[in-house]
Amino acid sequence: MYLSRRARIALRAAACAGFALLYVPLLLVLVNSLNPDRSASWPPPGLTTRWWTAAWHSSGARQALWVSVRAGLGATAIALVLGTLIAFAVARHRFFGSGALSFAVVLPIALPGIVTGIALNSAFSTVLAPLGIGLGLFTVVVGHATFCVVVVFNNVVARLRRTSGSCEEAAADLGAHPLRAFADVTFPLLRSALLAGALLSFALSFDEIVVTTFTAGPGVETLPVWIYGNMTRPRQAPVVNVVAAVLVLLSVVPIHLAQRLSSDTATTSRV
């Protein structure tokens, strides 16, 4: 498609404006984490790493980080099992209601987080409270798994639909046990899709705050919830900037790896 010189300039300007809108605020967070003043003054009078040291020694931030890691790992593990099983059911078998099942799996990630949080809070209070199980880390993991399953399901079902089942059938004809066929044939084909889904699931769980607010009990505080609770405390503002900067830097890693793995999967499927 041919574009005039003015159109190309306009598109480039719009793209630069869009990227600036997305990334300039993130850059400001990083700069403010090095600002020697407690207030977000601009331009900063200098640069210092004292707030990074204070954040490293903050027991509240470290504890919240550990809770976020445990919640993310638990939600990712559940999502990998359930998402993979449902993907196999939808992609490898034809049955009545498969479309409705796919819709039901994808729906949680499309719903507003506050709706999901309220629904889960009501369900946990109704079902778990009579059993003596209150809100805590377990309910946070379950709540995060409801939308992490979608990510794994989408990755695995897309990979299965691009992969013929003839290899698995050939392994079965040669006498391979279903588990052996899965380990030797199916899993290598799905490995990159599973890893990409796991990385994205962990990133989603790690950053979640709305669902966490409704499913976490007293004393259970993830890192995003800790950041939100300390934003209004002037003495904690520099430490919050440091933690936010670290989250931005760490979030790049799983997202970049997931993108590379997804692209490698797509390239492999076309070979």
Rank of each mutant, 00 (worst) to 15 (best):
Y2L: 13
L3A: 15
S4D: 11
S4N: 14
R5Q: 02
R5G: 00
R6Q: 10
R12N: 04
A13D: 05
A20C: 12
A20R: 12
L21P: 06
L21W: 12
L22A: 15
L22T: 11
Y23R: 08
P25M: 02
L26C: 10
L26I: 13
V31F: 02
V31S: 08
L34V: 05
R38C: 15
A40D: 10
S41T: 15
W42A: 07
W42P: 03
P44A: 13
P45H: 07
R50K: 15
R50N: 07
R50F: 13
R50C: 10
A54K: 03
W56Y: 15
S59P: 02
G60R: 00
G60E: 11
L65I: 00
L65R: 07
W66K: 10
A75F: 15
A77R: 10
V81G: 09
I86A: 04
I86K: 05
A87V: 08
A89H: 12
A89F: 07
A91K: 13
A91Q: 14
A100L: 13
L101K: 09
V105Y: 07
V106W: 01
L107G: 11
P108S: 12
P108N: 07
L111C: 15
L111E: 09
I114A: 12
I114E: 08
G117F: 13
G117P: 14
I118C: 06
S122A: 06
S122M: 08
F124Q: 01
T126G: 09
G132P: 11
I133L: 15
G134M: 06
T139N: 00
T139W: 08
T139Q: 02
V140H: 11
V141M: 10
V141H: 14
V142N: 00
V142T: 02
V157E: 07
V157G: 00
L160D: 04
R161P: 01
R162F: 11
E168V: 13
A171T: 04
A172M: 11
G175D: 04
A176N: 06
H177M: 03
H177E: 08
H177D: 13
P178C: 15
L179T: 03
A181Y: 09
F182I: 07
F182P: 01
L195T: 14
L199C: 00
L199F: 01
L200Q: 05
S201V: 00
A203F: 04
D207K: 07
V211M: 03
T213Q: 09
F214W: 13
T215P: 00
G217C: 08
P218E: 11
V220R: 00
L223F: 03
V225R: 07
N230A: 05
M231F: 10
R233V: 12
Q236H: 04
A237V: 02
N241Q: 10
N241R: 06
A245F: 01
V246Y: 11
L247F: 00
L249S: 14
I255Q: 06
Q259L: 13
S262V: 12
T265Y: 01
A266E: 10
T268C: 04
T268W: 06
V271M: 03
V271S: 04
